[in-house]
């Protein structure tokens, strides 16, 4: 089948191009769509299998990150969004997209009750924007994360701290929705410790899913860690490979999400790297 990707843009979202590239690299086809164009023609969602709210700074993070953009979507697209996730589709929110999905209540979506705001993604404990490479551990049955157990990818945000009440946290945990957690490079728990947990996030949470696992909201940027040349240790890896006479793999950890999306819809990669 030919699954179609729609990556949202507009009002300060800014990672749409590299995010679409990530899907296209895996043989998927799609479009970047300005939010106002989608609001004008929401029926387009019916032809789409993968919806992505990419990273960025919608409305400059003013009034709380993702808040204004979520309101814009809620006022004009909420029914269509609910219909979209009710179909066999995948939804991804990265960074600002993660904040938007949380504010829309597309996650955690307990018992498919989308629209309920139970999780906040708020100011880093350092009150500073943090752009750095981190390690995450993955425990999830989400199709987005199939086969991945850890990833070395970057974060870049001022408001990445997941907060919620204890009841929500317990439910997320028992449902297996705490998909992505910050860890130390050796794989042990970050335990809230900066910089391994870069924002003070509750329970070291870096990303959560809805109950079905098909909606993923993740703060780190897999699309900035999908090629080996993007990695912070690229020159170290390159040098080591040269000494050993090996060739470096073209792709890196972050590519897993996009590859999984293609696999989920049985799209074969156009050229095998």
């Amino acid at each position: 089948m030919t699954a179609k990707v729609l990556v949202l843009a507009g009002y300060g979202l800014n990672c749409e191009e590299e995010t679409l590239h990530a899907f296209e690299y895996n043989g998927l086809k799609g479009n970047i769509r300005h939010i106002n164009d989608l609001i004008e023609n929401p029926a387009e969602l019916k032809d789409v299998q993968i919806l992505v709210v990419p990273g960025g700074f919608s409305y400059g993070d003013d009034t709380g990150s993702g808040n204004a953009f979520a309101q814009k979507m809620k006022l004009s697209l909420m029914d269509q969004l609910k219909q979209f996730v009710a179909r066999d589709t995948l939804t991804l929110g990265i960074c600002n997209g993660c904040q938007i999905l949380a504010n829309l209540g597309m996650v955690p979506g307990f018992d498919s009750k989308y629209g309920e705001r139970l999780v906040a993604v708020t100011y880093n404990l350092t009150a500073r924007y943090q752009c750095r490479w981190i390690d995450v551990q993955i425990e999830s049955a989400s199709p987005w994360l199939d086969g991945a157990s850890s990833m070395h990818i970057p974060v870049a945000h001022g408001e990445g701290r997941f907060m919620m009440d204890d009841k929500t946290l317990k439910t997320l945990e028992s449902n297996g929705q705490l998909a992505v957690k910050y860890v130390k490079p050796d794989g042990s728990a970050a335990g809230g410790q900066f910089p391994y947990n870069p924002n003070g996030s509750t329970a070291d949470i870096a990303g959560i899913t809805d109950q079905s696992g098909k909606v993923l909201a993740i703060m780190p940027h897999p699309e900035r860690g999908m090629f080996t040349w993007q990695r912070d240790d690229y020159t170290e890896l390159k040098d080591a490979a040269q000494r050993e006479g090996k060739t470096l793999p073209e792709t890196a950890d972050g590519m897993a999400l996009f590859k999984n999306a293609a696999r989920y819809f049985e799209v074969a990669k156009k050229d095998v790297a």
Binding site: N14, C15, E17, E18, H21, G55, R128, Y129, Q130, C131, R132, P154, A156, H221, E223, R224, M226, F227, W229, Q230, D232, D233, Y234, T235, E236
Partner: peptide
């Protein structure tokens, strides 16, 4: 300064402002 600046948006960063282990 470097960590406050988003230096890898657009997915284009090869060698960044902070180098080495």
């Amino acid at each position: 300064v470097a960590t406050q600046y988003d230096h890898n948006v657009q997915g284009s960063a090869v060698l960044g402002p902070i180098q080495g282990k």
